[in-house]
Design a protein around this nucleic acid. Structure first.
Lengths: 339, 339
DNA sequence: TTGTACGCGTTATCAG
DNA sequence: CTGATAACGCGTACAA
């Protein structure tokens, strides 16, 4: 520190200027404390001219907790996860909480970083899909740090979860593809390993079955991750045999759908929706672009963010409450790939 | 708080267990303090069994500063800004700093939130392009809070700035378009109001002029913002008169280029690169997708993030140092829209 | 309602 | 190298 003069006013300075005790200043800035309107006014005025702000670090220390919430997410390049960030920050702010960003892309560093986060006496942690392994979340809960998650399997005892209605989304996709005339169906995405992918696939297959579609008319094409490249790869696999190629495809995410669409158009000359119909999941920005106009199942990011913050702040005030699992409704967005 | 029992071990607990003084514990966890290897080992062992973590709030308080850095950014949906977030978090973490996310989309709330941030005794602030007005940044500097910015005009005294080499990028685009046979040129984007847009445009026009292109062969198409829609609009404007339509177009950002490309293809039947050539700026994910394969000027997000963190941490240790303005090199990424 | 006195968990200082 | 003690800025019992 080159500049040693303190650049902030402290409560004592304000007290001296207002001609009151230091406690009076403290009480003025403590919600629900008893101060006479007169002193309160004098304190506020002095605080304003001195540009006084309560030192939240000190307040946090004394109260044994902080107002910081760790937001741990991986693959920020994933458009959907990026879309989630803004509403999370907004709803946290509305409750006086502040988001600390924690990138979980490097698993080794993540464990260390999460450990470090414990030093900050954070009020809670929000984890989004595909982020750190459950074992790390468990460590938090063992230390009584509230954990809330978005789009993850509700496997962790004591953690709240909000999931988009993947099952209903899959069913919606099935119905729309069926109604627009498809007869041979496919699902593309991680339907064995990934939680959301599996639910979406199940909802899809269930609904198709109820619609009377026979099993041999449904192809399940697995992939390890939900990427553009996975979609391209699946297209080459599924469209190679023209005789048995599907004409109604549901992809686990929009990025997969985009990859599928591009490869189907370029390599196999397929047109959407004339030759085949396609539905994605998420409703990311790209889906609306003119070159795609992808019909998709939209997740409501604001609902997801609001719920996760709501549940987390409940658990912050009462750590031992029963874990909650909420389901956020999804909606079908009709664009050009479903006729 | 329902659970009153303290869930964290404190230094005193560790000291008692290790049979040493509190100070010994403190020194063990203070980098550069002198402890004998023997005590150090005993402390570390006790700390491990008790799961002790230094309370950073308390440490911050006594040291009069925190390790939090406000990262204020607007429009997180903007892919480029989202891409910047991960490397910023990474480089901050490498210096023991933690990013506090601050969304600046709502200007009213922003001012309030920035005020609130002052209460946290943050170590510094990073601002990205197009975020809050300069007046807010000025408030921080007045309170001796270091400010570093990415892709902004170096107008603010005492704030460090790192910018991509917009001028060179514009020149690169000019050269590539020229070499791939274009004869009528256009620039599309905010070249009057927006700092980066203006620099990119200047570099473009300068280079074209040096290449011998006459002024009446260069069209400047202004827009208020850099959006997909702005690109579409510009295409309708610039391509309406087929006789004077450009065949070499440089857009201020990739999103603008995508909009231009889609509209040019759909409404005017233009093909890239056969009928016209196109270069964007940023190198966002979308640019690489098969339906676009957009040639573009890539910003080096890792360099930007590294520099901004580097300058910020320098200013954290010496607030009065001379302001620095750095330029980050850009590179041309050849894809399918430049022949 | 107001002021005094103490404690929160840590680091810096200083004597040993 | 070690241990005792004084800060840091604030909230809050307690007594007035």
């Amino acid at each position: 520190m080159t500049d040693k003069e303190k650049s902030w006013a402290i409560a004592e300075d304000v007290a001296r200027m207002a001609g009151v005790s230091r406690s009076a200043v403290s009480r003025t800035f403590t919600p629900g404390a008893s101060v006479s309107p007169k002193t309160r006014a004098r304190v506020l005025e002095a605080a304003k001219t001195l540009n006084y702000h309560v030192d939240i670090n000190a307040r946090n220390m004394i109260q044994g907790r902080s107002t910081f919430v760790g937001v741990v997410t991986s693959a920020l390049v994933s458009p959907f996860r990026a879309q989630l960030l803004a509403p999370i920050a907004h709803h946290l702010g509305a409750r006086g909480l502040l988001p600390i960003l924690m990138n979980a892309d490097d698993p080794d560093q993540t464990s260390y970083a999460l450990q470090r986060l414990l030093s900050y006496r954070i009020a809670g942690v929000i984890m989004t899909s595909g982020a750190p392994p459950l074992s790390l979340a468990r460590e938090y809960i063992e230390r009584k740090v509230p954990v809330a998650m978005i789009n993850r399997a509700p496997e962790l005892e004591g953690a709240d979860v909000i999931n988009s209605d993947n099952h209903a989304g899959g069913a919606l996709a099935a119905r729309e593809l069926f109604n627009s005339g498809a007869t041979r169906f496919a699902f593309i995405g991680p339907h064995t390993t990934h939680f959301s992918g599996r639910q979406r696939c199940e909802g899809y297959v269930d609904a198709l079955t109820r619609l009377g579609v026979r099993k041999n008319r449904i192809t399940l094409c697995n992939s390890t991750i939900s990427s553009y490249e996975a979609g391209q790869l699946a297209a080459r696999e599924v469209l190679a045999d023209a005789a048995h190629a599907p004409d109604g495809v549901f992809c686990a995410t929009d990025m997969v759908a985009l990859g599928f669409m591009d490869e189907a158009r370029r390599t196999f000359g397929r047109r959407f929706p004339e030759d085949m119909r396609l539905v994605g999941f998420d409703d990311i920005q790209h889906a609306a672009l003119d070159s795609y106009r992808l019909s998709t199942i939209a997740q409501n990011t604001d609902t997801l963010a609001h719920s996760v913050v709501d549940m987390l702040s409940h658990r912050i005030t009462d750590f031992s409450r029963a874990a909650e699992v909420r389901i956020a409704p999804v909606t079908f967005v009709r664009r050009a790939t479903t006729g």
